[in-house]
Amino acid sequence: MTALALDDLHKSFGATPIIRGVSLEVAKGERHAIIGPNGAGKSTLFHLISGRFPLSSGRISLNGEDITGLKPYEINRRGLSRSFQVTNIFPRLAVFENLRCAVLWQMGYRYSFWHNIRKATDANDRAEAVLQQIGLAERAMMPAGLLTYAEQRALEIGITIAGGAEVVMLDEPTAGMSRSETAHFVALIRKVTEGRTLIMVEHDMGVVFDLADRISVLVYGQIIACDTPVKIRSNKAVQEAYLGQALETEH
């Protein structure tokens, strides 16, 4: 069963093509990593899938349903949630409030101004559960903007998964983290995406080979290889284009 299918996606900014014919199928429950050199279009691809940018051409379907051209909130409501490379939270709201806002729609509260939010037990319980999962229970009442960088990254993931989306997209979740924080974070990502489809952009090859079932290599707006970590590692074209340098800088 395919969770997400990309069919010949193209995106140009003005005359500059950034994504040049990307096709990809991600199966349900798969952990899929997208790697590639800087400027390859990884983040742009994320923005296209999540509806932040409109496509120039191509078709995207989520669980068999066409989501091409839908608004970000419509895509989110259909079960696709994403995180951001640059931390994107509600800075002056409490940590708990950040998570509660992330679950309200999926819990069916929509635009309700006739429910008392304190009595929205299901939403409160869900937010509380995610709060525990991401290890920020002690910080529940603190404004999110005052958290440390690593804590904000954890909250970012918490907001992304809180709504219960089946397809979770993480854009460089471990960017800017120390080694020990990264290790802790990989465990966290593994835990919170249990049973869901995960698509992530990541620069840390350790994280990628540790987490991913399959890896796509994006170079200059095209996927040059898509396979299991073992096969990607030994792929000639990938080594030439990218992995050789990336692995060198890693070690």
Partner: peptide
Amino acid sequence: AFTRTPLGRMCNAVRENPERAEFVGYS
């Protein structure tokens, strides 16, 4: 009371970060 409703809280969320609000399902 309005400030204590789901919509009231989402008003705050939209004030704080409209982009993120769109990505948690709210127009």
